[in-house]
Structures are given as structure tokens and as C-alpha cells.
Design a protein around this nucleic acid. Structure first.
Lengths: 192, 192
DNA sequence: GTCTATAGTGGGATAGAC
DNA sequence: GTCTATCCCACTATAGAC
């Protein structure tokens, strides 16, 4: 509006200072956990002092929102990749969900452990993900929702170390997803 | 060992200072959330100063362990009560799980969001609960585990405000628990 | 069993100079 | 865009007097 420059958007994977900060923050979060993610730590890693960060971001919460948004986009990519291969789409997406969460445990928790600040988030940033999940459950939103809860429970309990060491989690995943995805009625030929 | 007193255990629901501290801590945790649970806050509520607490408990972690242990015992009682009534035991226990969690959201998170410090916990404090759940799933540990994950996921997503406002959660609960509890095979008469 | 005083640590954030 | 200096906050925990 104020600037005469044509619609040249900032590059997504930019080398801008702000993007750099978010990238470093993600690294620290995954390496040290949420308590390690301090403004001081981020600044140190960048080779600057903490107060300088505030020239690029308003406050810590803005940083966390950026991390969550990135995480949601990554998850969508992982889902799309998983659906590209053969096999039961529900199971494929569940496996992708599981894998992604284990690979980014702290970001996963940041993304799912509290209300999504939708008003601060870029619009529609998780719509595509939801779409993919629902579709892989035959368009049944109810079953997709139940499967989401099951998957989220499996992930958080595993991350919290709450399963006994001898539990066969792969089996539990298969049992849970299969039970939710395939209603008994289907077996009798009642394919909707 | 050192004291000659006979085996008179401290009363469970005692009026001892330590019990009082734990009770107040539970109140504050539920009222203010985990960040509000500070030694200062507990002391203030008791009308004393924070350092005085350390005459009764070793450190804050000991306090949290006591809270978790109490929570586990409460949950067991809730499960037992739920199984006393008619109906599908799996559904009954799931409803009890849901109700208890919503009534004690922050304690629930403290109990389930991190590894259980079993070595600091009174022995066998959750064995009875596990027993009840497994039994209500026909003795099938695998299904009981999957149902646990589903229930935990439902609770944490609801507590985190992650379900859309128009979601019919009662329906999702019924669908999830029924799907997991009753395998398709059963319909063909394969009742083990 | 309670107090005061205090240590020790750490956090987020701002002002103003350069 | 970075710096220094600093504020203000909060927390857990200990020492030692009463």
C-alpha cells in the first residue's frame, strides 16, 4: 500500500533474518525441549545478543506461532508423500503421522498441546491436511476424527514413556487404525 | 527403626501438615494450572512463608509425586464406581475416564504428560486401574491399550481445545470405543 | 514449626546509543 | 541491525534465629 514496489513477496525459504531466527528456534526446540527455547539461547546461536531479536519479531509468542505454522506445513507434505504409495491409505497416513511426530517430538507437542491460535496463523494452513485425512477414511469425518484422537493418544503416550517396554506398539497401531477405519458393517457388503 | 513406636501408620486423610500441603497444592493446581503451582502460592494459601514448606517436604518434585499418586487412586475409585452399573463395561469405563479427566484437567496432565516416576510412587498404585480396564475389554490387553490411547487422545485434544466447536464428541467417543472393543470377527460368532 | 534474609538462577522485554 | 545497560519479574532452596 505505502510502497510502490510491485507484488514481490518475500521468499518462503528466505535468507531473511526473521526466517533465520525461526529456523534456529526450531533447531533449539527439538534439541533442548521447550525449556531450552529461550530468547537468549536463540540469540547466542545466531551470534548476537537477545535484545537484537526484537528488531525482527514482536515477542516470543510470535515466534512460537511461526514454528507451529511451519510444523503444520511439514505435516501436510508428509501426508501427501505417504498417500503416494500403495496400500491402505488410512494406515499409510497413520504411519506418516507417527513417523513425523517421533521425528519432531517437541514441535509436535507445541503444535498439539494447546489451542491453535488461528487468528495469528496464516489462513488455511492446515486445511489441506484435514482434507487428506478425511479422504483416507473414506470421507467419514467421524471416523477420521476418532482416528486422529487414537493417533494423538498413541503418540503422546509413547513420547511420555507411558507404554510398558514390552508393548508391541506397531501391533497396537494396526489394531486401532483398522478397527476405526473399517466398520463391521462393511464386512457384510454394506459399502455405504 | 529409630523410633520405638508400634506400627501406627499416619492416617491417609490426615490433618497432618504434610497432607494439608498436598491438599492445598491440588486445589491451586486445578485452579491456576501448572504455572500457578509455586511454593510461594502454596505457602501463602496456608498462611505461612514459602521456606517453611521445606520442613515438611523435601522438594517440589516430592509434592508433584504425591499429587500424581492421589490422582491415580481417585481414578481407580471412579472406575470401580462406573463398573457398578449396568451396560457395556468398556463404554462405562471410558465415560468414567472422560468425566474424571474433565473434572481434573491439570492433574490429569500432570499424571499423563510425562513418564511416571515409578520409583518414587507408592508400589502398585495403578495396578488395580489397569486390571479393571483390561477386564472391561474382555481381557484383551491389546484392545485395552488401543482404547487407552484413544481415550487419552480424545481427552487431551478436548482439553487443548482442538476439536471444532460443532463436533459431536459423544458420538466420537461411542464410535471409537465400540470400534476398538468389538472386533468384526465377533459378529460372525468367533467369541474366542 | 515458623520466621527473616538471602543466595542463586533464570526468564522476557525495553531504552537509547551507535 | 546491533550493542550495552538495565529493569522487573519469578522461582527453588538454604542458613540460622526464634
Amino acid at each position: 500500500m505505502t510502497s510502490p514496489s510491485i507484488a514481490v513477496e518475500r521468499p518462503r525459504t528466505g535468507t531473511g533474518r526473521r526466517e533465520e531466527i525461526v529456523r534456529i528456534a526450531a533447531t533449539i526446540l527439538e534439541r533442548e525441549g521447550p525449556d531450552g527455547l529461550t530468547m537468549r539461547a536463540i540469540a547466542t546461536e545466531l551470534g548476537i545478543k537477545a535484545p537484537s531479536l526484537y528488531k525482527h519479531i514482536a515477542d516470543k509468542q510470535e515466534l512460537e506461532v511461526a514454528l507451529v505454522a511451519d510444523g503444520l506445513r511439514q505435516q501436510t507434505v508428509a501426508f501427501e508423500a505417504a498417500l503416494g504409495v500403495d496400500g491402505d491409505p488410512a494406515m499409510a497416513i497413520a504411519e506418516a503421522y507417527h513417523r513425523w511426530a517421533l521425528a519432531h517430538p517437541h514441535l509436535y507437542t507445541l503444535m498439539n498441546g494447546q489451542p491453535l491460535p488461528r487468528h495469528r496463523l496464516p489462513e488455511g494452513v492446515q486445511d489441506r491436511s484435514i482434507q487428506l485425512v478425511v479422504r483416507s477414511f473414506g470421507g467419514d469425518r467421524e471416523r477420521a476424527r476418532a482416528a486422529w484422537a487414537f493417533a494423538h493418544g498413541m503418540v503422546t503416550l509413547e513420547l511420555a514413556g507411558r507404554f510398558p517396554p514390552d508393548a508391541d506398539l506397531r501391533r497396537t497401531w494396526r489394531l486401532g487404525i483398522a478397527s476405526i477405519a473399517h466398520p463391521p458393517q462393511t464386512r457384510e457388503g454394506t459399502t455405504r
